[in-house]
């Protein structure tokens, strides 16, 4: 995973609430076994018309925002499906930082796993940054994860909160799986050996053949 330390970029504003993962990448583009190449389908429903032509009014199609590295929206960004194709599509387009007043849990997690920094800011600050973003190339934002600061074009600095563990993972671009195996293998083995775990059956072999389908309760 690529590190995230400091980013200076044009920001694109999408002033909508509940920007869901079906909008970020519609399901018809999930028929891939790769992580890459999804950038062209980012926001496909809004970005292209039925014939596949670009909608000139959509922010990411405007010349100033074609290289946006930051996306700003309103509340509950990334709600809906758990598809990691959403951050993959953002990343493939070139977006490394997403800013919103609030995020859906799974999407928020998925961002960190892909080197994308999700920042929660109060709505007023998001609106102020959207105003900056409206100036396109003339108003680049700088996001500094080390200092947990956003530098506005007029020099104003906005601080943001960040979980220290997640911050470290992003700053160093750490591989979660390798870290867990390295640091916790003993603890996992000890957990698996607990006598209280004995009831958990195996999925390898059915204990008996199927006899019932629905049920459990009286209203059947």
């Amino acid at each position: 995973m690529e590190k995230f330390t400091r980013l200076t970029s044009v920001a694109a504003a999408l002033p909508q609430e509940n920007v869901d993962t079906d909008q970020i990448i519609p399901a018809r583009f999930l028929k891939t076994i790769r992580r890459t190449g999804l950038g062209k389908h980012l926001f496909a429903g809004q970005r292209y018309d039925a014939e596949g032509n670009e909608n000139p009014d959509f922010v990411l199609n405007k010349p100033a925002y074609r290289k946006a590295g930051i996306l700003i929206t309103l509340d509950n960004l990334g709600c809906g499906s758990s598809r990691e194709h959403a951050p993959w599509a953002l990343l493939d387009f070139g977006i490394r930082c997403v800013i919103a007043p609030s995020f859906a849990d799974i999407f928020y997690n998925n961002c960190f796993k892909n080197g994308i920094l999700p920042i929660r800011l109060p709505r007023e600050q998001c609106l102020a940054l959207m105003d900056d973003a409206s100036h396109g190339e003339n108003a680049r934002l700088t996001v500094d994860l080390e200092k947990q600061e956003i530098h506005r074009p007029d020099g104003e600095v906005i601080s943001f909160e960040m979980d220290p563990f997640r911050r470290q993972v992003l700053l160093e671009g750490l591989d979660d799986v390798a870290q867990t195996l390295k640091n916790h293998e003993q603890a996992i083995r000890a957990f698996e050996a607990r006598p209280s775990r004995a009831w958990v059956p195996s999925t390898k072999q059915a204990g008996r053949p199927q006899s019932v389908i629905g049920g459990g309760g009286e209203q059947v």
Partner: peptide
């Protein structure tokens, strides 16, 4: 029971665990 992204799917396949708050 909860949904996870593909990176977490990999984490569970490899470690049978997840880092969670």
């Amino acid at each position: 029971a909860f949904g996870i992204g593909t990176s977490e799917v990999e984490h569970v396949l490899a470690t049978q665990t997840l880092l969670q708050k």
